[in-house]
Simulated assay, not measured.
Amino acid sequence: MLNLEPLAALAANEMAGHDSMCANDAENIITKSLAVLAEQGLYAFGLFLATRKREQDRIPAQRIDQEARRLLQATGLASVEQTRAPDMPSFYRSLTATQPDESAVEALRRILLAKQLLETTLTYGRYAAKALKNES
């Protein structure tokens, strides 16, 4: 059995970054992306991250995407092929599709677990960014 919480905590710390000067930007984009994920789902989350235009939003969005891909692959919720998707929307859309080796019920379980794991990770990431902000 795989313990997901430590993996989520590690990914969250990387999402928050290590620069206290950019912690506020990281916290803002993490908070917004968490709201999109919770309200709209995985695909909307990917679209949100992909559409960030301002430099101070784009860098944390890319970091969130990288860590989300790494976490989902490490937990077996995404395949290596999926994580190699060329863009964010393609990756998150592939997560919501039923895979050839799973039933509809198994796909639903995987999708819900992936969403819950990312929600937990983003929540931890918010707190990590706040802590980083307070260090400066």
Score class of each variant (00 low, 15 high):
Met1Trp: 00
Met1Thr: 11
Leu4Thr: 03
Glu5His: 02
Pro6Arg: 00
Leu7Gly: 02
Leu10Ile: 12
Leu10Val: 15
Ala12Met: 13
Ala12Phe: 00
Ala12Cys: 05
Glu14Gly: 13
Met15Ala: 08
His18Asn: 08
Asp19Phe: 04
Ser20Gln: 06
Cys22Val: 12
Cys22His: 15
Asp25Ile: 10
Ala26Asp: 03
Thr31Cys: 13
Thr31Val: 08
Val36Pro: 00
Ala38Asn: 11
Glu39Asp: 06
Gln40Asn: 13
Gly41Trp: 06
Gly41Cys: 08
Gly46Pro: 04
Leu49Ser: 01
Ala50Gly: 14
Thr51Met: 15
Arg54Glu: 04
Arg54Ile: 07
Arg54Pro: 07
Arg54Gly: 11
Gln56Ala: 15
Asp57Ala: 12
Arg58Leu: 15
Ile59Ala: 10
Ile59Val: 14
Gln62Cys: 09
Asp65Lys: 01
Asp65Ile: 09
Gln66Phe: 07
Arg69Cys: 08
Arg69Gly: 06
Leu71Val: 11
Gln73Gly: 09
Gln73Met: 13
Gln73Ser: 15
Thr75Ala: 06
Gly76Ser: 04
Leu77Gly: 06
Ala78Tyr: 05
Glu81His: 07
Thr83Trp: 04
Ala85Asp: 10
Pro86Cys: 12
Asp87His: 01
Pro89Gln: 11
Ser90Phe: 00
Phe91Gln: 00
Arg93Phe: 15
Thr96Ser: 11
Thr98Leu: 05
Gln99Ile: 15
Glu102Thr: 01
Glu102Ser: 04
Ser103Ala: 02
Val105Gln: 11
Glu106Arg: 07
Glu106Tyr: 03
Ala107Gln: 02
Leu108Cys: 12
Arg110Ala: 03
Ile111Pro: 09
Ile111Val: 13
Leu113Gln: 13
Leu113Asp: 10
Ala114Cys: 08
Lys115Pro: 03
Gln116His: 14
Leu117Gly: 01
Glu119Gly: 10
Thr123Trp: 07
Ala128Thr: 01
Ala128Val: 05
Glu135Ala: 14
Glu135Gly: 08
Ser136Thr: 06
Ser136Glu: 14
